[in-house]
Design a protein around this nucleic acid. Structure first.
Lengths: 237, 237
DNA sequence: CTGGTAAAGTGGTCAGGCCAATTCCGGGGC
DNA sequence: GCCCCGGAATTGGCCTGACCACTTTACCAG
């Protein structure tokens, strides 16, 4: 597998991509050992340092694991990843504000262009939420699903990605505690009622109403967080 | 945290972590140039190959950018690697539309509440962009910096996170080709002029004008992509 | 068969060198 | 005086070759 004569990418990148391709294609199975650095260098017609640089890139990308004195082992396709993270000191309000902006627009777009199947998916998530609440468990997961499916129904995958990113921030160390305060059955009933308003506006193809309903929902969520937040501050003082 | 007296991590990791910490702490600001590899090696008491390995790791992690013959440049805190990824078949238009919505709001918020230092940071990024364009190189990195700093100036770290997430999508396999079509000096001049309008509105504390200017910028960007996109489709057919 | 020890294999790191791209600077042309 | 351009200095890209540390294997003695 000769290297291109006119490839402007740096050498370590070319090598890393070639090896990554082999791993993706299953040429090297997970757990399998790659040839020694010296052999790879000879086979590819490059120097050992270049191979080493490529292997380090692959290690950072999660493709391989390097064991000192033993060898380089493939880890398999689809690299492990860490997502961006919100600064620890940013309160929940900035996040809610961002969601207010973005998710209200998602709701509006969904009302305009969602397919029947997508509307159905949103309704399913809401039903699931209701069922969990009836069983007395906290419908946190289905709440997330509801919002995500609306974002998907907007027809804009970039917005869907953003909503998912923001929602996953709630799994941070600080937000879990707040989530807890927020968790009384009565408050969940309010949230479910607000969700019904949103889904109805979408189903009725009313973009303006959908946006307004989502904004109301977010405003209420902000207020609920606010009370928890105050309690928390008072306890600290 | 192990914190062993004899650090068993491989050397390149120790070096990379050390440099990454400096970037996170703002010791090296975004866009700033790091010392040459040879100097770093001498300062840290290690060999140049080890420094090179560390820099490659940092490059993969999105901390730095290496420009041949010029130097190593910090990209800013928090890496871009391995984040959630957009579906491969979603065109650039969904992404632009999402940025249209979010970044225009960021500009408006920035005009309302940015500190003097934050406005200054945005202006710096624009100056940097102009400088790079004058040198004939594509100011892609400083373009990114400009938009990121406006998002930071909004005072909402969740929005800043979102903007960063969306911007990093452009590094996908498909977008790079488009970026290329988009890269004529004349088009960059237009982009820089639009950036000036945005930054002026922010400096003058006019939220409405800032939002409008950013929306115009995004509309034009969409049109530019549109022509590239059509060309691309035609070539495929 | 067991245990330990020597040898081979493999990655870790270093030193030093040459090449190519970029940047910088000073001198010549207009 | 201003601009352009060509060479020198700077900087990253890549290579050769070597030695060290750790791991695995092989072999031999008990």
């Amino acid at each position: 597998m000769p290297l291109q004569s006119v490839d402007s990418r740096r050498l370590y990148r070319q090598i890393a991509d070639q090896i990554a391709a082999l791993i993706e294609k299953g040429e090297y199975r997970a757990g399998e050992r790659l040839p020694p650095e010296r052999d790879l260098a000879r086979q590819l017609g490059v120097s050992r340092p270049s191979v080493r640089e490529a292997l380090i890139a692959l290690e950072v990308e999660g493709y391989v694991e390097v064991r000192v004195g033993s060898g380089v082992y493939a880890l398999g396709p689809h690299p492990a990843s860490g997502s961006p993270v919100l600064p620890a000191d940013s309160g929940p309000f900035e996040l809610i504000r961002a969601r207010w902006l973005i998710e209200s627009e998602c709701a509006s777009l969904a009302a305009r262009s969602a397919t029947r199947a997508q509307v159905r998916a949103v309704e399913d998530a809401l039903d699931q939420m209701q069922a969990q609440r009836d069983k007395g468990t906290m419908p946190l997961a289905s709440d997330r699903l509801f919002h995500l499916r609306i974002a998907e129904a907007s027809g804009n995958s970039a917005l869907a990605l953003v909503v998912k990113t923001l929602w996953d921030q709630r799994m941070g160390p600080l937000f879990l505690r707040l989530e807890h305060h927020y968790d009384t059955p009565a408050l969940w009933d309010v949230a479910i009622r607000e969700h019904h308003e949103i889904v109805q506006a979408i189903a009725r193809r009313d973009p303006t109403a959908a946006r307004a309903a989502m904004r109301r929902h977010m405003n209420h969520a902000a207020r609920r967080f606010s009370t928890s937040w105050e309690k928390r501050k008072r306890r600290k003082a």
